[in-house]
């Protein structure tokens, strides 16, 4: 059951982002719900699994978008890996840890996407609009991270999202 839910979560996230959040964007900026789920997963399950999950979720998003397929896969895999590594030594049950990880992960994800975009699309440049977009997404993701991380952490400890073999 937990595998099915983990499989469906990114599908649901892409669906919500392309519909509900599309109609309620902040100054044209959407949250990155897929990224929030990847970070929640990485904090709870560690860097290795986080990297694979991030890659698959990013690939799903790329296939839906149909352009530069793989760009989100690499960015989310790397974000999953780094947030998974950083979680060691923190109290994972604390929502603030989740929200902070999502905040850092959003910036990291944007930085990786920026580097990859520069490689794939040389004329790409940073301007005020770009920075503004990242900052809006940063705020939007943090707002979503608090309740989502709380739900995810509880479910992964005692609920439907607990992976087999986890203590």
């Amino acid at each position: 059951m937990c595998y099915l839910i983990h499989f469906l979560l990114p599908f649901l996230a892409v669906f919500l982002q392309s519909t509900v959040f599309g109609f309620y964007s902040i100054k044209g900026t959407l949250p990155d719900l897929v990224l929030v789920f990847v970070i929640c997963f990485s904090i709870v399950n560690g860097a290795g699994k986080g990297t694979v999950y991030g890659f698959l979720c990013g690939m799903l998003e790329d296939l839906y978008l149909g352009r530069f397929i793989g760009i989100n896969a690499i960015a989310k895999a790397l974000t999953g890996y780094i947030t998974g590594r950083l979680q060691k030594g923190f109290f994972r049950e604390n929502i603030i840890v989740g929200a902070t990880a999502v905040a850092l992960g959003t910036l990291l994800n944007a930085a990786v996407l920026l580097v990859l975009s520069r490689i794939a699309f040389p004329s790409f440049h940073i301007d005020e609009q770009f920075v503004q977009g990242v900052l809006y997404q940063f705020a939007y993701n943090i707002i979503l991270a608090a309740p989502l991380y709380g739900w995810y952490y509880r479910s992964s400890r005692i609920g439907l999202l607990k992976l087999p073999g986890e203590k």
């Binding site: 996230a13 892409v14 982002q17 392309s18 519909t19 959040f21 599309g22 109609f23 044209g28 900026t29 959407l30 990155d32 897929v34 998003e61 839906y64 978008l65 352009r67 989100n72 996407l113 975009s117 977009g133 997404q137």
Partner: peptide, 9 residues
Amino acid sequence: IARSPNNWF
């Protein structure tokens, strides 16, 4: 019926 799910495209 839908919009781009991210801000890049």
